[in-house]
């Protein structure tokens, strides 16, 4: 006989608990990954902008613009970086990676501003643009545009992997819970089956006539066996009384 209600309640409890853990962990993961990866990308872009800015000082003062262009051409090969432009202190665009030309949105901006800004460039996409001053700004500034679509894709991929892992843990956890609840409920079911069988024969041929399969529970040395023996004792004595040997004292009191 199955202990359906107990099983269902326990299973529902476990399912709810795992669901809550999974959902809250996923939300936390999404938030953490999104925040950290975005910050990391912006931070990396700022590092790159600063590296170019530091290198540009020497190039602008001692060398030529083709060297500067060569430098930014190498950095723009880094995945995620879509454009770089370098301006001088007068706001003139000295080197850039735009083709066929510098977008109007950028030309309309303030090239000396090195704060991080979000940009939407028609035909190119959405970008996070970071800047770094050259020689504290007196020699110009370097601006680096990171492709937010690529950042979003990376974040989605990272989040997807985490959610995938959590989902696997959730499914495995539910199946494990079902198995464990089943394992725990089976002795209780045996006791119940024994009690029902004895009750059916009460006033008849006595409990010895009960199906031996159900009687096996009396041989168990766990709580189920004690409960069955207590039930038998009560039945024989017509009600609760002295606890039989091996029965839990609490159960007889």
């Amino acid at each position: 006989m199955k202990v359906k209600k107990l099983f269902q309640k326990t299973l529902f409890g476990v399912f709810s608990l795992f669901g809550f853990i999974g959902l809250s962990t996923s939300i936390l993961c999404v938030y953490t990954v999104d925040t950290h990866l975005s910050e990391e990308y912006v931070s990396n872009s700022q590092d790159i902008a600063k590296t170019i800015a530091d290198a540009s000082v020497d190039i602008l003062l001692n060398r030529d613009l083709s060297t500067l262009q060569s430098l930014i051409d190498q950095f723009v090969e880094i995945q995620g970086i879509r454009y770089i432009y370098v301006t001088n202190e007068a706001g003139e665009y000295l080197a850039h990676t735009f083709v066929p030309g510098i977008p109007e949105e950028i030309l309309a901006g303030d090239p000396s501003n090195t704060e991080t800004v979000d940009r939407n460039l028609p035909g190119m996409g959405d970008f996070v643009e970071v800047g770094s001053p050259i020689l504290a700004g007196v020699a110009g500034a370097v601006h680096v545009g990171m492709d937010t679509d690529l950042i979003a894709l990376k974040i989605q991929r990272a989040i997807g992997q985490q959610v995938y892992l959590i989902s696997i843990v959730f499914v495995v956890g539910v199946f494990a819970a079902i198995w464990l609840v089943n394992l725990a409920a089976r002795p209780v079911g045996d006791v119940l089956a024994y009690a029902v069988a004895v009750a059916r024969d009460a006033g008849g041929e006595g409990e010895e006539a009960v199906d031996p399969r159900h009687r096996r529970v009396l041989e168990r040395d766990d709580e189920a066996g004690q409960l069955a023996r207590l039930f038998l004792h009560c039945l024989r004595n017509g009600g609760p009384g002295e606890a039989p040997s091996g029965a839990p004292s609490g159960a007889a009191s």
Partner: peptide, 11 residues
């Protein structure tokens, strides 16, 4: 040309 050569001539 969007590279060092183009920038050299541009300069």
């Amino acid at each position: 040309q969007a590279d060092a050569y183009g920038r050299s001539g541009w300069a």
